[in-house]
Design a protein around this nucleic acid. Structure first.
Length: 816
DNA sequence: CAGTGAGCGAGCTTCCGCTTGACTT
């Protein structure tokens, strides 16, 4: 048995380190945190000085047991988790759960995974830093208090199962606010003028400095140019340079992989994880831009060999964001000499990006020469400007160029080439001058990656949580990632050629969005609610300010329980106030008066999403209609709403049963005899007629018949069916589906065979959620034991207090 | 798969940060 047990956080790291240490050292991994607040309930006693209740996380029992055994056998246990707040806490939790003896336990840290660094760490052990641990406990408890006190208010006031938290709620707020900026944005247009001059056998493009607000203004300008002469008034040559971007952090890697490779942040992390596990890159969850000395040295060598010494420019990057905890290096190739790796396509592409970015960061600036020519117009004071840019020395641009979030930005840059040879004072021949109507663009909606960038700037969230946070807010349906089609928009173009001005209307597509984040109606309602009652938590600076306090705790200058006390008392007061006094929130909005009934018409969210409603909420008779997928609670108009009430339509009878057309969650359908038949996109549900309806029903029947292998109708079980599905034959009982072994011919199965097979599969996989399983409620877990409770509770009075005034109001009786 | 929009009730939902698998479909 090894004398020394070293515990790190990740198994890949453990494997590497084991190679550096002798056979006296056994290196194991904790797989991150091993202990956390008890999963259910607050697990913090707010009346007992915020005593936290911890438990070994269920999925870590195994690891903990193993580590416990190994720790017992070892003489010395080395806790080598990361140097940041969370890492320190992991070590402390390990010490606690493994019941480590302080004398035989050493805390060590290292910043790079190299043999000398690790040997040095072993020589300079320390004790667990309790202040740092306390800062983590404060962070952990605060997040639990915020999340577990706010979420239940949402369940009560808006909808069950919703969630709120320090990070996710602010992320949603960013998207909601951006959407409103877009909605309120008023686009204005201006006429931008450019000219093409003939220089020798080349054309030179120049832009007019000013633009014109109106078509008349642009036309008047072109008129002035008709008989003008154009002279190069100044010619200016200036050197310039460009500097490479810093090596990748989690956030910048996600951004670039999104822009250059079209990866979602999740995909980026999955691929990076594989590269890390196979030892090709350093750790992928980091906020550090720092490269180890070893890496800088190696980069120098690689650049020298591949591009020459003049391309070398070693740089040390520093982190600008305050929250950075720098437990790791930047993300870089482990072996910089490998400019390609084998593996899947995505892995190769992401690796390529990481290699180029790392190498470029150690390369020389690009040197440019920027030429600016001003061209005077004899008939007016306005001037044209022509710009050219030439790369004198490519430097890092040889391997890598960072992309930008602004669409079209990159192409503009690369288009700027050298100006043709011109002299100051030279008169230029004009080919054409055009004035094009251009529109201002609303602020860009967030992509997953640009949201991560924003969160990082605000210091909200950590490298390990960016991707999960983005997933959470989509899972909760606060936000959706979508493409949206643009709409055509006309614009004017005026062209002056020789002395002829022509005018035409062209059309462009505008407003198209690709993979952008949009808030949902419920996302907006929740955000508004939280903003109204918990503005402090929703403040963009909330995280930053509590982070400062965590830092003070880490420095030993503040007690963590005291800090929580100061935060919690006023917060909890707000929670109680809101719980007692606030109205239910549904985003209700009066959109007008229904011309048919004279009643008010409202838009709001209900249990199943946004809806429009005719009549007051306490009216006896109301009418409802769901909003369609492309409609928003905040923007729907009375006209749109009235359209919605034209459905459902009865379009006729077939086989003695009526055919009803409506739009459901998956689009338009016809309901006939309890069967749903989808209406294809080519038909309009508003105008579809009886004959077409029958046609669709018959077509559906035919398709169903073809997928039917056998149904046990004679046996009286028409719910037991053998069907041909997308993945081959399968068994369906009611709404639950079961596999059929590949070796069996489904046609030979009897009813009994099917039932046995289904039962066997239910038995084998009790965890699979099958759609049916709603037979008898008898199989529920020990219902008897829980029946005791209700007698003790009496919540009736509380209920009565609510809205008593309105209840007895005489129901409005409007005659139709 | 889809129509609803609320109601006596019971019990459930939920946070952020560390880490990697393991059930299918």
């Amino acid at each position: 048995m090894a004398k020394n047990l070293v515990i790190v956080e990740s198994p890949a790291k453990a494997k590497t380190i084991e190679g550096f240490l002798g056979k006296d050292f056994l290196v194991k991994s904790s797989f991150g945190h091993v202990r956390d607040l008890v999963k259910k309930g607050l697990a913090v006693d707010t009346e007992k000085n915020f005593e936290p209740y911890y438990e070994v996380s269920p999925d870590k029992e195994k690891v903990v047991n193993e580590l416990r055994k190994l720790a017992k056998a070892a003489e010395i246990v080395w806790l080598a988790t990361d140097e940041d707040r969370e890492g320190e806490a992991i070590s402390w939790h390990l010490a606690e759960t493994l019941k480590l003896n302080e004398d035989d336990t050493r805390r060590i840290v290292f910043h790079e995974i190299t043999k000398p660094a690790i040997l040095k760490a072993i020589e300079t052990p320390r004790k667990i830093d309790r202040h740092l641990v306390d800062a983590q406990q404060a962070r952990r408890v605060l997040d639990r208090l915020v999340g577990f006190e706010l979420s239940p208010i949402l369940w009560k006031k808006i909808k069950p199962s919703l969630s709120a938290g320090r990070v996710q709620s602010v992320a949603v707020r960013l998207i909601v606010e951006r959407e409103r900026e877009v909605m309120n944005f008023k686009s204005v247009s201006a006429y931008k003028v450019s000219a093409l001059f003939q220089v020798g056998n080349q054309q030179m493009k120049a832009e007019l400095r000013q633009s014109f607000d109106t078509l008349e203004g642009a036309r008047a300008f072109l008129e002035k140019c008709k008989n003008a002469s154009f002279t190069v008034s100044t010619l200016d040559v200036k050197p310039g340079k460009r500097t490479p971007a810093a090596p990748f952090t989690t956030s910048t890697l996600q951004q670039e992989a999104s822009r250059k490779l079209g990866f979602s942040v999740k995909r980026t992390m999955v691929v990076a994880q594989r590269l890390y596990e196979s030892g090709k890159i350093t750790y992928m969850r980091t906020d550090s831009v720092n490269l180890s000395e070893l890496a800088v040295g190696k980069a120098k060598q690689v650049i020298s060999e591949n591009f020459g010494d003049q391309y070398i420019h070693s740089r040390q990057y520093r982190n600008k964001s305050k929250g950075a905890q720098e437990a790791h290096e930047a993300i870089r190739p482990t072996y910089l000499e490998n400019n390609v790796v084998d593996g899947e396509r995505d892995e190769m592409r992401l690796y390529d990006l990481i290699w180029k970015r790392t190498i470029a960061s150690q390369m020389a600036d690009a040197e440019l020469e920027k030429t600016t020519a001003q061209i005077a117009i004899s008939t007016t004071t306005e001037t044209f400007v022509a710009q050219g840019e030439v790369i004198k020395f490519d430097g890092f641009l040889k391997v890598y160029m960072e992309s930008s979030d602004e669409e079209g930005d990159e192409t503009e840059k690369t288009q700027e080439g050298m100006l043709p040879p011109i002299r100051q004072g030279e008169t230029l021949a004009m080919n054409t001058i055009t004035a094009v109507q251009r529109f201002t663009h609303h602020p860009s909606r967030y992509t997953e990656a640009s949201l991560v960038k924003k969160l990082e700037e605000l210091g909200i969230g950590r490298p390990s949580t960016y991707a999960p946070t983005i997933s959470t807010i989509q899972d909760r349906a606060y936000v959706v990632k979508e493409d949206r089609d643009g709409r055509p928009r006309g614009y004017d173009v005026l062209t002056l050629k020789a002395t002829q001005i022509t005018e035409e209307k062209r059309s462009e597509n505008t407003g198209a969005e690709k993979s952008k984040l949009f808030p949902t109606d419920i996302g907006m309602v929740v955000t508004d609610f939280l903003q109204q009652y918990f503005p402090k938590i929703m403040d963009y600076n909330f995280t930053a300010s509590v982070e400062e306090e965590f830092d003070t705790i880490a420095e030993g200058k503040m007690n963590w329980r005291k800090m929580l006390e100061n935060f919690y008392r006023p917060f909890h007061h707000d929670v109680e106030q809101t719980s007692e006094n606030s109205e239910r929130a549904s985003g209700e909005r009066l959109i007008g008066v229904d011309p048919n009934t004279g009643k008010n018409m409202y838009a709001r969210v209900g249990r199943y999403g946004a809806l429009v409603q005719i009549g007051e909420s306490d009216d006896e008779i109301k009418k409802f209609a769901s909003l369609r997928k492309d409609q928003r609670l905040e923007t729907i108009t009375l006209e749109d709403a009235l359209e919605l009430f034209k459905l459902p339509r009865i379009i006729g009878e077939f086989e003695g049963k009526e055919m009803k057309v409506n739009i459901g969650r998956f689009g338009p359908y016809i309901l006939h005899n309890n069967n749903f038949v989808s209406i294809p996109k080519t038909d309009d549900p508003m105008s579809i007629e009886m004959d077409r309806g029958v046609e669709l029903i018959l077509a559906k029947r035919k398709a169903d018949a073809e997928k039917e292998i056998k149904v046990f109708r004679e046996e009286g079980r028409d719910d037991v069916r053998l069907l041909n599905g997308r993945w081959g034959p399968y068994l369906a009982i009611g709404k639950a589906n079961y596999k059929i072994p590949k070796t069996t011919d489904p046609a030979t199965l009897t009813l009994q065979d099917c039932l046995t097979m289904a039962a066997a599969q239910d038995e084998a996989n009790p965890n699979i959620k099958r759609a049916a399983a709603k037979k008898a409620g008898a199989t529920k877990k020990e219902p008897a034991a829980k029946k005791k409770a209700p007698a003790a509770k009496k919540k009736a009075p509380a209920k009565k207090a609510k809205a008593p005034a309105k209840k007895k109001a005489p129901a409005k009786k409007t005659e139709k």
